[in-house]
């Protein structure tokens, strides 16, 4: 079997990752000085710095000029199969979500939306654009489309205070029962960059979801971008045919 030596940078990242896990460092905790760590692991300062910079970019660490490197706030975990609203899910993780309603308007379906919702060209839909912030930091920009006939008067609901799904369920009897979600990468446009507080062209999650009610069919089609340094997407998979699952995550 071949000899394998990890590259110094890979070794540095692995050691840092191990250090965080082993010492159970918490958000806001300070990492030992770079000098100390590079001596401890026999790494050059520049290799260690490259590794730290990479972890900063990934949202695991942050640095303060002249004072060192710190453990970043935990990422928001978006459970892809959970149907908790974002505010419920965040609360369970000890985070607070705020929603800023950027725009809500009634518009006519273009070709693509009409096809997606199985409606005529020009059928009315609501377009709801919201900026979701976690602990006051921008996290996700969502644009949702909802057939207007299913939710007449949606523009008068308190969409900054209530989740869209609970409005749909409680006020319109639409139950978000199942759906699908696609995830990829996109790059921030100038407008997205400004709202999200990132540089233009920086990578963002691109999430497209469709949610269905048993009777009404597709009730919401949503396109979102999210900051990858503040969010991770998770799911637990179970092989079918096994007995009752254990959903502890």
């Amino acid at each position: 079997m071949q000899e394998y030596r990890a590259r110094p940078r890979e070794r540095a990242e692995e050691l840092l990752e191990g250090y965080l896990l082993e010492h159970r460092l918490k958000p806001g905790d300070r990492l030992p000085p770079e000098r100390e760590l590079s001596q401890l692991w026999g790494l050059s300062r520049s290799t260690l710095r490259t590794a730290i910079a990479h972890m900063e970019q990934d949202g695991l660490l942050y640095s303060r000029e002249g004072s060192g490197n710190y453990i970043a706030a935990p990422k928001y975990n978006r459970d892809l199969r959970g149907l908790l609203s974002m505010s419920q899910a965040a609360a369970a993780q000890g985070l607070r979500v705020e929603t800023r309603l950027l725009d809500i308007k009634r518009m006519e379906c273009g070709k693509d939306l009409a096809r997606r919702f199985g409606r005529m060209l020009g059928a009315p839909v609501y377009k709801v654009a919201r900026l979701r912030c976690v602990d006051a930091a921008p996290l996700m920009l969502e644009t949702a489309f909802i057939p207007a006939e299913l939710a007449e008067g949606l523009e008068y609901k308190e969409l900054e205070r209530r989740s869209l799904f609970s409005v749909l369920e409680e006020d319109y009897g639409l139950v978000p029962e199942q759906g699908d979600e696609k995830v990829g990468i996109t790059y921030a446009t100038a407008g997205e960059a400004e709202l999200m507080g990132v540089a233009e062209e920086s990578p963002l999650f691109w999430i497209v979801s469709q949610t269905y009610d048993r009777q009404a069919g597709l009730i919401e089609y949503c396109r979102a971008v999210a900051r990858p340094d503040r969010m991770r997407l998770t799911t637990v998979l179970e092989r079918q045919g096994e007995e009752e699952d254990i959903h502890e995550t």
């Binding site: 990858p228 997407l233 637990v236 998979l237």
Partner: peptide, 27 residues
């Protein structure tokens, strides 16, 4: 029988980026 998965965006080091045929700075 069970997998815990998480999806994140990161950037590869130059050598790995070359293997995958992407620019190093690309997510």
């Amino acid at each position: 029988v069970r997998g815990e998965q998480s999806l994140e965006i990161t950037q590869l080091n130059p050598a790995d980026a070359r293997q995958l045929g992407v620019e190093p700075g690309r997510g």
